[in-house]
């Protein structure tokens, strides 16, 4: 952020963060099960927020709701001024049966990037993902980590102000994990808000500014990362961090 001292806005202390992403009482039921059970959260428009919670808590579902891919049964998702449009990297990314380059070109086309600007943007994305060397290879023949990196920069093709990442480093080796974490950090440093789902506690500690803890379709806790890992408040989070089985 490059805010100079003289333009600091005067904010009344009680005013809500108009830049935030606000989730108001999001509910989603399916065949009598409340998969999302009144999710309430106000997520700041900058930094990296991690969304943590046990398997089946509803993390991926919540990301889909934020992306408007799934309509909640009730509740509203409101994007503050800080967000123009979100992009999502799925837990299991699906690439087209084309080259790496063609996948990115396709994404740029969908993102309405003018033809003249595409090749420049494409080269940037390839560099960001460290895939320049593999640009002509079939995307589906890339290794898992390479596919993840490609999926992340593909999501960046639309220049999103909010990037949702669903376990981007699950099943990757340490160096591939590090490559992706670097990419996440750089993206965040470039001003993109990131919401990251992860089961990797060390990763959450390394990257997160704040933690949203989702349990049984509800936000059980939303605190700063340091606080969360040192002294979780909710029983559910305590149990999760202690490795207890949460059902």
């Amino acid at each position: 952020m490059s805010e100079s001292a003289e333009v600091v806005p005067i904010r009344p202390s009680i005013r809500l963060d108009t830049d935030a992403l606000t989730l108001t009482d999001i509910r989603l039921s399916h065949e009598g099960r409340n998969l999302l059970d009144g999710v309430i959260a106000e997520i700041s428009s900058n930094g990296i927020t991690t969304l943590i919670g046990p398997n089946g808590a509803g993390k991926s579902l919540l990301l889909r709701v934020i992306m408007d891919l799934v309509k909640p049964t009730s509740g509203v998702v409101e994007f503050g001024d800080g967000f123009e449009h979100p992009a999502l990297v799925f837990q299991r990314p699906i690439l087209l049966r084309r080259s790496v380059r063609a996948n990115l070109n396709h994404a740029l086309k969908l993102a309405k990037v003018p033809k003249a600007d595409r090749s420049g943007r494409l080269a940037e994305l390839l560099v960001a993902a460290d895939l320049t060397r593999l640009a002509e290879n079939p995307a589906r023949a890339l290794s898992g980590g390479e596919q993840q990196r490609l999926s992340i920069v593909r999501a960046l093709a639309s220049n999103p102000s909010l990037l949702l990442l669903d376990e981007p480093t699950a099943s990757l080796d340490p160096s591939a994990t590090k490559a992706i974490e670097d990419l996440i950090r750089n993206t965040s440093a470039a001003g993109v808000k990131i919401i990251l789902v992860t089961h990797n506690r060390a990763q959450a500690k390394r990257l997160a500014d704040d933690v949203l803890f989702l349990h049984q379709g509800k936000i059980a806790e939303h605190t700063l990362a340091e606080k969360f890992f040192q002294a979780p408040q909710s029983d559910a989070a305590k149990g999760y961090l202690a490795g207890d089985l949460l059902l």
């Binding site: 889909r64 992306m67 449009h85 969908l110 593909r154 639309s158």
Partner: peptide
Amino acid sequence: EHGETLRAMRATRPQ
């Protein structure tokens, strides 16, 4: 296989 991914990328129906 690709529907959600394409919708997430805001593809129109013809696209």
